[in-house]
Amino acid sequence: MIDATNISKVFNGRKDRKETLAISNLTMSVKRNEFVSIVGPSGCGKSTFLLMLAGLEKPTSGNLTIEGAPILGPGVQRSIVFQEYLLFPWRTVQGNIEFGPRLRKVSKDDCLADTRDFIELMGLTGFEHCYPHELSGGMQQRVAIARALANKPEVLLMDEPFGALDALTRESMQMELQKIWLQTQCTVLFVTHSISEAIFLSDRVVVMSKRPAIVKEELKIALDRPRQRDMHMTRQFREYEAYLKNIVWEEVN
């Protein structure tokens, strides 16, 4: 469904005009309905890659296509959950979540009905009328996820969405995400720093090298669906984890 061929991205520094090669010759593809995680050292270009898939950054060279058509700009069938939440502070939780549908002139009542599921799913019931500054970081992140889901995307791009959550909430959010993914049949690209999270959620884990990023390794995860919490303990899971940790470790050092 998504094909990235020989993607590279050069950033021009603002002051010194120094060029940063963030990504060089990255090639990877994602199949429809696949759940793919990307792990890699900090600053290697993971967020940049997701922004390009969202159509918010342009690759300096290379081809980026979705179902054969080049990605030329943002599109509502691709939703992104940003690392920095980026909620609209002047809108309530409800207002943030229905931002996308309201742009397309969906009536207020329909929005209310449509978004109720996502609000419930994300554990935000009772907070619909709060403003973002009244919420904790973890709750803001959940609003950001609900906002992305409200557009009913075919592709969900998630940039460290659970980074700000405590371990327990994180686990339950992973279960919820798996449920959403199984229900909605969307394609997910998931960036995380947690190798076990990547294994637990994904069909495939992609390891990026340090900057300039290329694909260092790809690993198919052959665990049964739906994944259960106790799978973390299985031998197979441990083996995946040890293997990936080794590769990432090599990159970091």
């Binding site: 943002p74 509502v76 992104i80 609209f88 931002f99 397309r104």
Partner: peptide, 21 residues
């Protein structure tokens, strides 16, 4: 960017993001 990815076009960006912000 967040608003654009949610589907906001040029005019909507002004009325729904730039002005309130």
């Amino acid at each position: 960017m967040a608003a654009q990815s949610l589907g906001a076009n040029g005019f909507q960006l002004w009325t729904r993001v730039l002005l309130p912000s």
